[in-house]
Design a protein around this nucleic acid. Sequence first.
RNA 1: GGGCGCAUAGCUUAAUGGAUAAAGCGUAUCCCUCCGGAGGAUAAAAUGCGGGUUCGAUUCCCGCUGUGCCUACCA
Length: 593
Amino acid sequence: MKSASERFEMIDRQQWKDLVQARLEVMFENSGKEGTLPPVVVQVPPKPEMGDLAFPLFAFAKVFGKSPVELATSLTEDINSLSDRPEGQAFAAGPYMNVRVDMASLIEKLCEKVEKEGSSFGSTNILDGKKVMVEFSCPNTNKPLHLGHVRNDCLGNSISAILKASGATVMKVNLINNRGVHICKSMLAYIKFGNGESPESTGIKGDHYVGSWYVRFNSWAKEEPTAEEQAQQMLVKWEQGDKETLELWKKMNKWTIDGISKTYEDTGISFDKYYYESDTYKLGKDKVIEGLERGVFQKQEDGAIYIDNSDIGLDKKILLRKDGTSIYITQDIGTAINRHEDWPFDSLVYVVASEQQYHFKVLFHVLDKLGCSWAKDLHHLSYGMVFLPEGKMKSREGTVVDADDLMIQLTAMAREEISEKGRDKDLEDPDKTAHDIALGALNYYMLQFDPQKDVTFNPKESLSFNGNTGPYIQYMGARISSILRNYTASEDLYKGTEFNASLLANEEEREMFKLCGSLPELVAKSAQSYDPSVLCSFLYDLCKIFSHWYHDNQVLNPDDKALSVARIQLCKVVLASLKSAMALIGIPFLEKM
RNA sequence: GGGCGCAUAGCUUAAUGGAUAAAGCGUAUCCCUCCGGAGGAUAAAAUGCGGGUUCGAUUCCCGCUGUGCCUACCA
């Protein structure tokens, strides 16, 4: 059976692979030797001039009693003598047999496909009919977003777009963490020292304003030993529904959420549904008790309910406190079950940092024990931590990279660069362009690495628009757009000239078509591995080849109309591929910049 | 202590068990009478240590060293 991604391949590797396997078997039979042949592997040669497909023959040397080099020679002869082989040429390359496929027909097919599919080029149907819920962001309402949240948001937003492009119906959900003792801390500091001020009266963005009281609490707590206790008492009052406490809580929550919403808006992040922890934190308690009654959980002597995880090699985990109140995992059990009842998903993806891997392992196991057949459909998209050169970011010590500050800084840098390059007069709205460039830089930076891996953010070195960056990608899009505008302006010159795909035959042109043609399988791959970085690499590779190519190859040349028309076709395919992939990783496309 | 990761050029990152380990930044040197130089070209520079599996290991296995996270009746 073919794997999902192979259905989108422009070059039919499977066909070649089957052919090679079949011919090797014939050769083996004719040799009269005994034994079984190992399976054929097909790979991509490391350099374009080595062809499009490669078949290493090392593994066959032993059974044939011949060197891989000899095998490559005879296999190549055999294959090239076949009249009904797929279009293309085989050639021996040391211990490999490589294949150069016939590009002209592939190019024509690809151009048609791109023309037909337009901005949806690259999408696939591997998840058709699937309902996928993606939970991400999940901020606390006691402080503004920092770089760690930004990685989460970019990933969640991008992976949702990628899943959608794979045919799934996606529900993006955010669970606002708006209760708990940490929330009470900023409230308490505000009561003590706030003097009734507000974001409006101080002109400070709401989330930053509340965050400043959280910081204030922590400095106060260093002098005041009862501070922590007072915060705890406030939480008790909150849980008892104390009117004044609730009112302040509502007011301050709104300040923060309004502020965070602005950040979302500013960074292109959106959700289909918001959940609030204050509404959901009690869910799950019944489920845990139910589990106890069914004997899948146990009760300690002091009354706390726990699950024994020794069957999966983990420690036991408390699920309900001895006083009967919920903890973090109790709530997650409840919300998962609740969500599945609300919107029966085929899959639920939690975008949460790797530090919570243990938590999710336990959570999924608990749900499985509770008899949720869909527990196997839960996926923790665990991403690595974002560190600064000095180490981990700490809110309390003020060593965080603030999300808003970062955007402001990037936007200012972009705006300055626009002026420096004298582009103001060419742009309709230089400020908006600057903002889009900042957004491109941010998203590309956050998504270019393997999500699993920790990243180090060096502010000085990371904030760049040159080299392997979002703006570089945007720039190539703008340059191609510019060429296409020039073409349109002089279209009369080229009227009546037919597109001839065989004029696009140099290595770079072949490479670009091959790359663009592989976009659907790359989108499928990024969906299956929950990894947008695949698309970042695609974009960068494509732009790099295009940059080099158009530096040496004039696209528009009235003296050679056929060549110009062919190259314009290439530009169109590249541009469509860029646009599609950029949309999936949140890089705004710019006609001009 | 136990569990889960990670270790590739000076720095930040790539590389389905296969061909000369790929880029960006930084460094050095070139290129605008050429569709917009946020560009292009050239150069120096790397698989932590020790075993194993394999025809072949950056990739898989074991040990060591270093490093990060988790190991709450916090979230």
